[in-house]
Amino acid sequence: MAKQSLGEKLADISEKTKSSQAWNSIFRPGSIFRKGYSDSPRNRSYVVMNSLIYHLHPVKVKRHAVKVSYTLCLGGLSFFLFILLTVTGIFLMFFYRPTAAQAWDDIYTLQTSVTFGLFVRNMHRWTAHLMVLTVFLHMARVFYHGAYKAPREFNWVIGVILLTLTLLLSFTGYLLPWDQLALWAVTVGTNMMGYTPVFGDQVRFVLLGGVEIGTDTLLRWYVLHVLMLPFVAVIFMAIHFWRVRKDGGISGPL
């Protein structure tokens, strides 16, 4: 066989690259990286169909569903805030140790000596409060539009569970700075749970990891806050979004 010239070799490599799976998924039809994207109905469909967006949205939705005045974007914003909280939360985890001896000092050091530490902590706290608000308003919006009615009953149930999970996520995070505000807010909250009928003391013991709030409580709530509750919430969110599409998109128009 004749020896290939350099030009032939290059042409060969270029052809192999262009027929590879990676190349074709980056420069797929509808991709913004593909040369010559033009605004056509075909390409508009490809943008959704050939990307991750297809997990969340169909190619087309009812015209009234894109009106901001109908949904106020509350559900989407709740999800987006959850993502923001995950990102800022991961950053905070690098600088935090959940023990009574170290937690407060870690937060203090984070605020004073870590680049963007104070900013990211502020962001995490304020978006957390904001998320409680948007989830609550989302529930009110859905109720006032009668969107919990058939065939969406089950999705409403999932939604109420997600509201509860959001409150629990926020409440478990409240203890972590281990300052006076955290300690006594959680004392008030868990004392209330101790009044659960029949097994109140047991509920309180499991939640606190002991009879009093202490370093065990901190570890317990930390694991709940960064791992278990987000894990459960993500599962319920996946079901929630899937049900929205399964039940024929968002409700309405009124």
Binding site: R44, K60, K62, V66
Partner: peptide, 10 residues
């Protein structure tokens, strides 16, 4: 009456 998700909704 339906509209495309891209660009209207996204």
């Amino acid at each position: 009456d339906k509209v495309h998700v891209w660009p209207h909704l996204l």
